[in-house]
Nucleic acid binder design. Structure first.
Length: 524
RNA sequence: GGCAGAGUAGCUCAGGGGUAGAGCAGAGGACUCAUAAGCCUUUGGUCGGGAGUUCAAAUCUCCCCUCUGCCA
């Protein structure tokens, strides 16, 4: 089977990462880990978009070279992914020479195929913002606002990509491929945008205006501008043209393409990912079957408002991971949003999800189960042949959780996947109260039953510690450690069946998995 | 103005033709293995409004209202 190839958007290295960056990478990481446990070979690519005007300006302001500036910001991202246990297989940095070679090769091919042309554009240009202005930027009185500074009329030559040649193909493709965009209803936005847009795409900037970019191989007075640099990371780091470009350490492109999921935010669906990208691939000769799939996630708002620097409500994932542990944050980010929808970020709910669910629900269940097993049996499990309806009911809950979990996760409904696994936690907590192992321990006649209860708890918890491992890799590894069960190499969800723990299994010592946090005041 | 999403319990949200669901918050209770955790019971909603289709509508259709986003 083809490896599961998943990517995220590459982040622009102009400022430090916020919670939205973290959400997207964790989402992709969870899916990558899920697919691995589900038996697929996985290639997970993420990275940073490092070229462009803003970086060039910010670097100048900071008195650094663009590369130095970009390297500094990039470290913020890689350090955060390290901290949040985002484990990628490929790192797409657009200043990587291997990437630059592929971009140039692509541009040369399109140039040779007549897909690029040079054209002169005359218009109003903002010196301060270094960009051409359109009528959109005009105020109601027809003048340009103060923020644009000095506006001059300017004529400039640039290279264009014949986007309009492929619009009809794209419309037909979208209509005949409903799985191209998840969630499917977003396809209407794209078709909407395609109506009446016969514009070609400007892909260059004169080198005097922008030097921090990839030079056009056929016209070195220009540097590539944005999309042929940024979007192409999905193929350049997947091994596209690797041989022609002399790129080593790349995946075998024909094996892993097309991508099973380009995980992106809804802000960059139209036009870049749903219009430019498929058309770029189509122009390069990719067939319909080689067009990747897009997974569009929503945004975390803060108290109903968009997160923005000017509102001062930017959430810092690094600090949250310190307070709630990386897995506590990952859990919240996955359980409190439906993939594709927006959600409201809330301190109260983050604290609740950690203290009530992770600490009080799952963590306490592990702790009380192990504690009793140690207190009554020295931590050794025994198979006794005792069984009853209560035991059978718990086994059934465990058995039913797996298919529900897998189906939810495959459909990107991570919150439903968590809920499916959580049914085991809820049932097991109730199971303790109904079977009362602490009472059974006082009655020697109930010895066999006590053993069966302790076994059922430990076994059920082992299943939970596998199912939730894509969401909380570190904490679930600790849980398995406490359970004394090491997941065999190459263990897959399909290997989950009752009886992972053997007769005579020795449990580890209990230690609070998610220590309860005393937080009174919600943090800002 | 067009398109999309949302409008369901005090709060956050799930569900999506067949007696209204979860978590949190509130109330009461029993228990004690445990991270002052967990368990049981319970209060609480004419599912934005109106009309229609149907034996049956929160769910489908149409109209309208409010919020959000994108586009013009």
């Amino acid at each position: 089977m083809k490896p599961y190839y998943i990517t995220t958007a590459i982040d622009y290295t102009n400022a430090a990462p916020h919670i939205g960056h973290a959400y997207e990478k964790v989402l992709a990481d969870v899916m990558a880990r899920f697919q691995r446990k589900n038996g697929r070979e996985v290639y997970f690519l993420t990275g940073v978009d490092q070229h462009g005007q803003k970086v060039q300006k910010s670097a100048e302001k900071a008195g650094l070279s663009p590369q130095e500036f970009v390297d500094g910001i990039t470290e913020h991202f890689t350090a955060l992914w390290e901290k949040l246990n985002v484990r990628y297989d490929g790192w797409a940095a657009t200043t990587d020479d291997r990437h630059k070679r592929v971009v140039q090769a692509i541009l040369q091919r399109l140039h040779d195929a007549g897909q690029l042309y040079k054209k002169s554009h005359k218009g109003f240009y903002s010196v301060r913002q270094e960009q051409f202005l359109t009528d959109k930027e005009r105020g109601p009185d027809g003048t340009f606002a103060e923020e644009w500074g000095e506006v001059v009329e300017l004529e400039e030559e640039n290279w264009y990509f014949r986007l309009s040649d492929h619009v009809d193909w794209l419309k037909a493709f979208i209509q005949s491929h409903p799985s191209f965009i998840f969630p499917a209803n977003r396809a209407k936005d794209v078709l909407n945008a395609l109506e009446g847009s016969g514009q070609d795409l400007c892909i260059s900037r004169p080198i005097e205006r922008l030097s921090w970019g990839i030079p056009l191989p056929f016209d070195p007075r220009f540097v590539n501008y944005v999309w042929f640099d940024a979007l192409t990371n999905y193929i350049s780091f997947a091994g596209y043209l690797a041989e022609d470009c002399g790129n080593d350490l790349m995946p075998e492109f024909s094996r892993i393409w097309p991508a099973d999921a380009h995980v992106i935010g809804k802000d960059i669906l139209v036009p870049p990912h749903a219009v430019y990208w498929p058309i770029m691939l189509h122009a390069l000769g990719f067939t319909d079957a080689q067009i990747p799939q897009l997974v569009v996630h929503g945004w975390w708002n803060v108290k109903g408002a968009k997160m923005s620097k000017s509102l001062g409500n930017v959430i810092n994932p690094d600090a949250l991971a310190d307070t709630f542990t990386p897995d506590g944050l990952r859990y919240y980010l996955m359980r409190d949003i439906a993939t594709g929808q927006d959600s409201d970020f809330s301190d109260e709910r983050l604290i609740m999800s950690y203290n009530k669910e992770l600490a009080g629900g799952l963590g306490n269940l592990l702790n009380r189960s192990l504690n009793m097993a140690h207190k009554y049996r020295g931590g050794t499990l025994a198979a006794t042949g005792y069984d009853d309806a209560e035991n059978a009911a718990l086994r059934q809950t465990v058995a039913e959780a797996l298919p529900a979990y897998i189906s939810a996760m495959n459909g990107w409904a991570i919150h439903d996947g968590i809920a499916a696994a959580w049914k085991i936690v809820t049932h097991a907590n109730a199971f303790v109260d109904s079977t009362k192992p602490f009472s059974l321990a006082k009655d020697p006649a109930q010895s066999a039953r006590l053993d069966s209860v302790l076994y059922h708890l430990a076994e059920a918890l082992t299943h939970v510690a596998v199912l939730l491992s894509p969401i909380m890799p570190e904490a679930m590894a600790k849980a398995r450690d406490q359970l004394g069960w090491e997941m065999p190499a190459g263990f897959h969800f399909s290997d989950l069946s009752w009886g992972l723990l053997a007769d005579g299994h020795q449990l580890g010592s209990p230690q609070p998995l998610f220590p309860r946090l005393e937080i009174e005041t919600p943090m800002a």
